[in-house]
Deep mutational scan, measured.
Amino acid sequence: MSIQHFRVALIPFFAAFCLPVFAHPETLVKVKDAEDQLGARVGYIELDLNSGKILESFRPEERFPMMSTFKVLLCGAVLSRVDAGQEQLGRRIHYSQNDLVEYSPVTEKHLTDGMTVRELCSAAITMSDNTAANLLLTTIGGPKELTAFLHNMGDHVTRLDRWEPELNEAIPNDERDTTMPAAMATTLRKLLTGELLTLASRQQLIDWMEADKVAGPLLRSALPAGWFIADKSGAGERGSRGIIAALGPDGKPSRIVVIYTTGSQATMDERNRQIAEIGASLIKHW
């Protein structure tokens, strides 16, 4: 067993022997301040990774656009098919120029040779490549099948209805392509620590998230040296922004954090800054 596999296998073990965790309302004060600064709703939840206990939450059962955070769930569904012998990570998928959609920095470079399922998941999570996500959605049967996968996990809230990039439209009061912070946090925890996926697939999923290259201005910008984070960000229309993450000190994750916002007129930089400040408060009061 590799060191990384050992780390993920012992996530519940280490967490069980940690000192009790206590909620700190100071972080919620910052979440509410972010709402004021952005002029928009902000949803927040913080779960203990081992027990699933909610440590703090704000608007945990209000719907927010998922945006690209759905790509972690998508690759979880792909990995479940791999575990069941219905898919192979090494299978190569070929596609054409007509398949390319807006923001496809990886797939646009491989029109000639195609990409493997493993490479597509890596591109979808680490670079948020939209064509990679659409190609992977095709392998599982489309958005409705991802929703069905989530329902089978016990998540009857999260739903995907459309493809990239239309799913980022974020129309107010439109339930399409949305989740709730509580539902997303619980589902992410199941994917990373539950028995739904094999140990190898859980490790692969967290490795992809740990290698995320496009979430630097968010929670990662607030992390002290030595902290662990595996995350996936999302951005959408109407001032929408979000991030889902597993993080913790001492090089291992111990909490799940989900943050979503929508309806702001603020710039992307300002949305990023507010999420980073929430992260800084979380870490300060850990």
Rank of each mutant, 00 (worst) to 15 (best):
N134W: 07
L120S: 10
K252P: 10
G194S: 12
Q86F: 15
S254V: 05
G236N: 03
Q88F: 13
V29R: 07
I256V: 14
I171G: 15
R189C: 06
T138E: 03
G142C: 03
G154Y: 02
G279M: 11
S51R: 12
K252M: 14
P60K: 09
D113N: 04
V42P: 00
G239Y: 15
G85C: 04
R63D: 09
E166I: 10
A133F: 07
L199F: 14
T69P: 13
T187A: 14
K109M: 06
G239I: 01
L167P: 13
V117Y: 12
R255W: 01
S233D: 00
E164S: 00
I283H: 05
D155R: 01
V157S: 10
W208M: 12
V258Q: 01
V117M: 06
R59I: 01
M209P: 00
A235M: 12
N173K: 08
D113P: 04
G242E: 01
S221T: 11
W227P: 00
K30D: 07
R202W: 07
D177F: 00
L192W: 03
F228Y: 08
T139L: 08
E46A: 15
S80E: 15
R81N: 03
E210M: 14
L199S: 07
L196R: 14
L28C: 03
V78K: 12
T112Y: 14
V82S: 08
L79Q: 05
M67E: 13
M209S: 07
A84Q: 15
P60Q: 14
K284I: 15
I244N: 14
K109Y: 09
K71Y: 00
G141Q: 05
D174M: 11
E35T: 09
L150K: 01
E169M: 08
M127D: 14
V258N: 03
P217M: 07
T198R: 07
I283Y: 02
L73Y: 05
G242V: 01
M127E: 13
G242K: 00
I256F: 03
R255F: 15
A148H: 07
K252E: 12
I45A: 12
G90M: 14
G226E: 13
G141N: 02
L188Q: 03
G263N: 10
R92W: 04
R81H: 05
M209L: 14
A34S: 11
Y95K: 03
I54V: 11
K284P: 07
R255D: 01
A185M: 06
Q203R: 02
L188A: 03
L74H: 01
V82N: 13
D212A: 13
F228S: 14
W208N: 14
C75M: 10
E56H: 08
T147K: 04
H156N: 10
S96R: 07
P25D: 10
K144S: 03
P249T: 14
K232V: 01
L47S: 09
D36G: 10
P249W: 08
A230R: 03
L28S: 04
Y95Q: 14
T139M: 09
E102W: 02
L100D: 05
N50H: 06
E237H: 14
A211Y: 15
Q265H: 05
A235C: 15
T147E: 09
T139I: 13
G226I: 03
V82I: 13
L150A: 07
P181S: 03
T147Q: 05
A40W: 10
M153Q: 05
Q86E: 05
D129M: 00
L47R: 11
R118L: 10
L111W: 05
G251Q: 12
L100T: 11
Q97E: 09
S104G: 12
V101M: 07
D269H: 06
E164R: 00
R91K: 13
V214E: 14
K53G: 14
E108I: 12
L100S: 14
V72G: 06
E102Y: 11
A222P: 07
I45R: 06
K284V: 11
E35L: 11
N168M: 15
N168H: 13
R273L: 12
R241A: 14
R81K: 03
R63P: 08
N134A: 07
M153N: 02
P172G: 07
I229R: 04
N98A: 10
V42E: 01
T27F: 06
S201F: 13
D33A: 02
S281H: 10
L150S: 10
V101R: 03
E277R: 06
R238V: 09
V42A: 03
G142A: 04
D113T: 06
L160R: 01
H151I: 10
A276C: 09
L135V: 07
E61Q: 14
P143D: 12
K71M: 00
R273W: 06
C75F: 00
I140W: 10
V101F: 03
K213Y: 13
M180T: 03
A182I: 04
D36P: 04
Q88W: 13
R162A: 10
L89E: 05
L120H: 05
M180G: 03
S264F: 13
P172A: 11
P217D: 15
E210C: 09
F70V: 12
M115V: 06
M66E: 04
R202H: 05
I244Y: 11
K71Q: 00
T69Y: 00
K71C: 00
A170S: 02
A246M: 08
F149Q: 09
K190I: 14
L135W: 05
E166N: 14
I45P: 00
G263L: 06
G114Y: 12
K32E: 15
D83Y: 04
K190M: 04
A77V: 10
H285L: 06
G248I: 01
E87S: 10
R41M: 13
G114H: 08
L74M: 14
P249K: 10
S57Y: 07
G263K: 13
N50L: 08
Y260D: 01
A170T: 02
I283G: 03
F70P: 00
A222I: 04
L111N: 12
G43W: 01
N152C: 06
D99S: 04
V257Y: 12
D33K: 02
D113C: 03
D129W: 00
P249Y: 10
I278Q: 01
I171Y: 15
T193C: 07
D174E: 15
T198D: 03
G239V: 01
S281K: 14
L55F: 09
G234A: 11
H24K: 07
K284Q: 03
L49V: 14
K284N: 03
R162D: 06
R91L: 10
A40M: 03
S96M: 14
H285V: 06
T138W: 11
L28E: 05
G236Q: 07
N272C: 05
S51W: 06
I278D: 00
Q265W: 09
E56C: 10
R63K: 13
E62Q: 02
P143E: 10
L167Y: 01
A123M: 07
H24G: 05
A200L: 11
A222T: 06
V31Q: 01
V42W: 06
K232T: 01
G85S: 06
A215D: 14
T131N: 03
M66K: 00
Q203C: 02
R63S: 10
K284M: 03
F70M: 13
G234W: 00
I283D: 02
A215L: 06
N134I: 09
S221R: 06
R118P: 12
T112P: 14
I244F: 08
S122I: 13
T69R: 00
T193W: 04
I125H: 03
N168W: 12
V157F: 06
N50K: 09
V258Y: 01
G141M: 05
C75Y: 00
K32A: 14
A133V: 05
E210L: 14
L79T: 05
K213R: 04
G226T: 10
E26Q: 15
L49W: 11
